[in-house]
Design a protein around this nucleic acid. Structure first.
Length: 261
DNA sequence: ATGGTCGTTCAACGA
């Protein structure tokens, strides 16, 4: 079974590329982030024509997560228990959706950006990750195979950014963010992609300042798997080619190959 | 050429 995660940065403006990539990659399940649309705007018909069921969670033009699967899509959850809200007044955001596909519990997650070190959004990000840690601990205790997939907006290691000097006073690399990410790992999941990729492999390149052409990227998209699932991972890759050309998302798809149970 | 962006929705914001 081939499973992937991809921040598409608007499903409506990206659907032609997404469709081409789905067919080219042969993924069985795709976790999508930043659909940037409401439920009534999501192109369900395009996925159904490709043979995929889709569960989507979209509340506005921001955020939005989905899971597309051609190997079953059951027990869909929108949000996770205790997930913090944002804004004044505080409102739910579409940042998490879970579904069981072929016996594996999969989550598509869009972790809050944090914006700046002193921005209130950073506290929201850290609180969101703390609650995800709590939930991950509970899920891991069950022993079932599951994965947390998505855009974490954190570069856990120095080698995960093109320049630590550039990011020193910016979000995504700060000690509190890295500690929050490590907290989720310590709750019972492991990065199953890193062992299959070279150091300095990135998943995201800013649209600005020719970042992709200058190889100025970050590794912020991850697939974290429970032990039961990690034991079945046979390979992984980051499809950097998909970042090329006109109409590309600023994120590349991340793919794992999983053996049958 | 010594800087170079995209989405949302339509002035400004988010990333």
């Amino acid at each position: 079974m081939r499973i992937a995660t991809w921040n598409v940065n608007s499903i409506r403006s990206r659907m032609d590329r997404v469709e081409a990539w789905v067919q080219r990659s042969g993924v069985d399940v795709l976790a999508i982030q930043e659909t940037k649309c409401r439920e009534d705007q999501f192109p369900f018909d395009r996925f159904e024509a490709l043979g995929y069921e889709v569960a989507h969670h979209g509340l506005s033009q921001w955020n939005g997560v989905a899971i597309a699967s051609r190997v079953g899509l059951d027990d869909v959850s929108r949000g996770f228990p205790g997930m913090p809200h944002w804004g004044e007044p505080a409102a739910e955001e579409a940042r998490a959706i879970g579904a069981t596909c072929n016996g594996v519990r999969l989550w598509s997650l869009y972790v809050p950006n944090g914006r700046h070190l002193t921005d209130p959004h950073m506290q929201y990000k850290l609180a969101w990750l703390e609650q995800l840690r709590v939930q991950t601990s509970a899920w891991a205790a069950g022993g079932e195979p599951f994965a947390l997939m998505g855009d974490w907006n954190i570069a856990p290691h120095d080698e995960d950014v093109w320049s630590m000097e550039y990011y020193l006073d910016k979000s995504h690399v700060s000690p509190p963010e890295r500690a929050a990410f490590q907290g989720v790992l310590d709750a019972g999941v492991t990065d199953v992609v890193r062992p299959h990729t070279e150091p300095g492999t990135f998943t995201y390149w800013d649209y600005q300042r020719l970042a992709f052409q200058k190889r100025r990227g970050m590794r912020i998209d991850f697939i974290l798997a429970s032990q039961a699932l990690a034991d079945r991972v046979r390979g992984a890759a980051i499809d950097r080619e998909e970042r090329k050309g006109t109409g590309a998302s600023d994120h590349a798809p991340v793919v794992i190959e999983v053996a049958d149970a």
